[in-house]
Design a binder for these strands. Structure first.
Lengths: 116, 116
DNA sequence: CAGGATCCTAATCGATACTG
DNA sequence: CAGTATCGATTAGGATCCTG
């Protein structure tokens, strides 16, 4: 006998999930957005925030995020010349999701503090 | 002159983020958790919920999630034999994060409904 | 129905070196 | 400082076939 597929009880379809995960693709992308959620950061500052990321991967992800209109790049007229990255309005929309992930991460990392 | 690294304004360090992302690693993992958030599902039902996932990847991710105590597997005494997967208490903790991601995904996919 | 085994491709990442 | 170029290792994922 054939088992019937029960109707899912989940309200929204999986496609918005996939759409959002496409933006956060890459192991370091959430960290980049998280770091930028505190305000504009320079390239070197991002590397400082995310210690084990290579400059190659960091610049790759930043370029992708710019292409997706999540991050904006501004060249500053300083000496030496430097650049600043900041979240766009679209990028700011991602912050609550990252915050939720961080909250869970805290629970996973410190189960004893889960009561709080 | 050397540019100074400005102190980050982000409250929590990136490590909890990384810890949580490790659990959600893989393109399909969030979809699996999302599908299970509606209640226990069988293997075939998960494949139905996530149309383009191969059985290999699905079973791989399910095994990883079991190893991480996020998902529990129960063999049912039916004919033909079937198995059910469900979220553990730890797995349930991930649901709010996934929900937040879905919410952003809806905004990305349907910007015109962003007002709601 | 519920998966494991195998083969293969594409993407990601890390390390190193180099440029303006 | 702010990246780019290149290489090599790892891995996720797709397709197909097969079993209990």
């Amino acid at each position: 006998m054939v088992l019937k597929i029960r109707k899912t009880k989940v309200a929204a379809p999986a496609c918005p999930l996939t759409a959002c995960m496409a933006v956060m693709k890459g192991a370091w992308t959430p960290n980049i957005i998280w770091s930028l959620s505190g305000g504009p950061r320079r390239f070197g500052e991002l590397q400082h925030d995310i210690p084990r990321v290579s400059s190659k991967v960091l610049s790759q992800r930043l370029r992708e995020l710019q292409a997706r209109r999540v991050v904006r790049r501004r060249v500053l007229d300083t000496s030496p010349p430097s650049a600043e990255y900041e979240l766009t309005e679209l990028g700011l929309e991602l912050v609550p999701a990252i915050q939720a992930i961080v909250r869970v991460g805290v629970k996973i990392a410190h189960p004893e503090r889960a009561a709080a």
